[in-house]
């Protein structure tokens, strides 16, 4: 049996989790909610994270548009995703939820905008 102590990162409570792995199954204790149980399991089997960053935007009322991966992606793909995000350049206008990069770094997850950026001439 293998045991791992983790801090849950799902919310600011930061519950101390204990994950036991035995006979191919995992049990999570120490969590205060269902999200914690799911996180504990995922973290020992295939850890994932939501990546947030910014992308340059032309012709808008902001010069950077903040973005995030629509869902969490495998942890070992974070820097591959960042490489694509850093190269990206978009033009205003952009709305929250617009796809900025489809299927980022082969993860099957899109990178989407997290702010509205208006075109400068529309202001």
């Amino acid at each position: 049996m293998e045991e791992r102590e983790l801090i849950c990162i799902c919310c600011p409570l930061g519950c101390p989790l204990t994950v036991r792995m035995e006979n191919g199954g995992t049990t999570v204790t120490g969590n205060s909610c269902g999200r914690g149980a799911e996180y504990g399991k995922k973290e020992v089997l295939s850890p994932t994270r939501v990546v947030t960053s910014t992308v340059s935007i032309k012709g808008g009322d902001f010069v950077m548009v903040p973005v995030k991966t629509r869902e969490d992606i495998p942890k070992d793909k974070i820097f591959d995703c960042m490489e694509e995000i850093r190269k990206a350049l978009v033009s205003a206008p952009v709305s929250i939820g617009d796809v900025i990069i489809a299927d980022c770094a082969g993860t099957g997850v899109s990178v989407i905008a997290t702010r509205n950026v208006r075109k400068t001439e529309d202001i």
Binding site: C10, V50, T52, T54, D61, P66, K68, I96, T114, R115
Partner: peptide, 30 residues
């Protein structure tokens, strides 16, 4: 613009209490 400091807090983790979902700062502000 409105939204204050949330505009530069592009990371996620906002809104779990208020909206029961995990938002980035700009999304929470909006």
């Amino acid at each position: 613009y409105l939204g204050g400091i949330l505009n530069q807090c592009i990371h996620n983790g906002f809104g779990l209490h208020t909206f029961k979902e995990e938002l980035t700062g700009p999304e929470y502000a909006v």
